[in-house]
């Protein structure tokens, strides 16, 4: 099971949030060099982020706007007059 020191895991998350101080980053890196379990944990976290970011961008269906416009409540018909 995971026995990584809790504060090291917190530093990993600070690192991923890009909110880690220079000193803490040095501490994290030093620890990762000496601890296999933390190294794996950190690697898995970075992989997770990369995987989630690798999901492709998908677009709304082609007639999306038309469908929304057709469903809008009809009111104050002045559309187009002022433009």
């Amino acid at each position: 099971m995971n026995t990584c020191p809790e504060h090291i895991v917190l530093l990993m998350h600070d690192y991923l949030d890009e909110e880690i101080s220079h000193e803490n980053e040095k501490e994290l890196k030093a620890h990762l060099q000496s601890c296999e379990a933390c190294k794996t944990h950190f690697h898995e976290l970075k992989k997770t982020v990369a995987l989630v970011q690798s999901t492709s961008h998908i677009q709304a269906p082609s007639n999306f706007t038309q469908n929304v416009m057709a469903k809008l409540p009809k009111e104050k018909k002045r559309a187009g007059v002022e433009r």
């Binding site: 999306f64 929304v68 809008l72 002045r78 559309a79």
Partner: peptide
């Protein structure tokens, strides 16, 4: 009251 202007907003943000 210009409903068409809303269509442009939908176009900009739909994806």
């Amino acid at each position: 009251g210009d409903q068409d202007a809303f269509g442009e907003i939908v176009e900009l943000f739909k994806d």
